[in-house]
């Protein structure tokens, strides 16, 4: 479904990625792990066409994304929940969600507001609050809910557990597990090793701008050398 091959990119003169290869299959949950500053977010930005690929290629459903603009990706089925969650503070919770109305991928039996509220009941209570009045956990739920309303084929999450209380992390884990069971493909960037490896089918470890290890995430739990060297676990 998503194929990244030989990706080089960075910021101006500064190269961050030197040939990243990563794939996400249909219905698969894949996690991308790495230390602070390893280039995980940079990889996701390249996928979302927010950064141009200097070398290499990114394909989605077999289609090269090189010339595709960021704003056309939602219609192709890519949904991105960024690390700061990207909630619009000037918009109410309802408006944050309804923004997707005219830009989402139209599918039979897609996500509706009602389904989203069943999934995250907390959001229904906060509907008329401003985006900036939510707690961190609520913001994360809103960001995921908004991402789902686009009816994605692939949901991309950048550190969804960052700064959240353990109980909220557990809730988010349950919700993502449910999405996985429903067959949604997910690309998950995480620092929380346990969270990521219990959700994901496969894991990629990023270090020095390249993939240092990849394989079934169950195997990674046994690789203490890799964990120590590239993740500092």
């Amino acid at each position: 479904m998503l194929e990244i091959s030989g990706l080089h990119t960075g910021y101006g003169e500064k190269r961050v990625l030197h040939g990243v290869d990563l794939t996400v299959g249909e219905g698969e949950v894949v996690t991308l792990l790495g230390r602070n500053g390893a280039g995980k977010t940079t990889t996701l930005k390249a996928v979302m066409s927010l950064l141009p690929a200097m070398e290499g290629e990114i394909r989605f459903d077999g289609r090269p994304l090189k010339k595709v603009k960021t704003y056309d990706l939602s219609a192709l089925g890519l949904s991105f929940v960024p690390e700061n969650r990207g909630i619009f503070p000037s918009l109410s919770v309802r408006e944050n969600l309804e923004l997707t109305r005219s830009t989402r991928r139209e599918v039979a039996d897609g996500w509706t507001m009602e389904r989203v509220f069943e999934f995250f009941p907390r959001l229904r209570e906060r509907l008329d609050n401003g985006g900036s009045q939510l707690s961190g956990g609520e913001q994360q739920m809103l960001a995921i809910a908004r991402g789902l309303l686009l009816n994605p084929k692939l949901l991309i999450l950048d550190e969804p557990t960052e700064g959240l209380a353990p109980i909220v992390v557990k809730q988010i884990h349950e919700r993502l597990m449910e999405l996985k069971k429903a067959g949604l493909s997910i690309l998950l960037v995480e620092q929380n090793f346990g969270f990521a490896t219990t959700l994901a089918d496969r894991a990629f470890v990023l270090g020095r701008g390249e993939i240092q290890w990849s394989g079934p995430s169950g195997d990674l739990r046994g690789e203490s050398e890799i964990q120590h060297r590239w993740l500092g676990v």
């Binding site: 979302m48 927010l50 603009k69 960021t70 704003y71 056309d72 990706l73 939602s74 219609a75 991105f80 960024p82 990207g86 619009f88 503070p89 000037s90 918009l91 408006e95 944050n96 309804e98 923004l99 997707t100 109305r101 005219s102 830009t103 989402r104 908004r146 686009l150």
Partner: peptide, 24 residues
Amino acid sequence: TNIGAMVRASVDNAEMASCLGVNV
């Protein structure tokens, strides 16, 4: 209006708005 919400969203965070499909 929805377009008005898109304008406010884009003023807040243009990158995020474009990730949601808004042609900023």
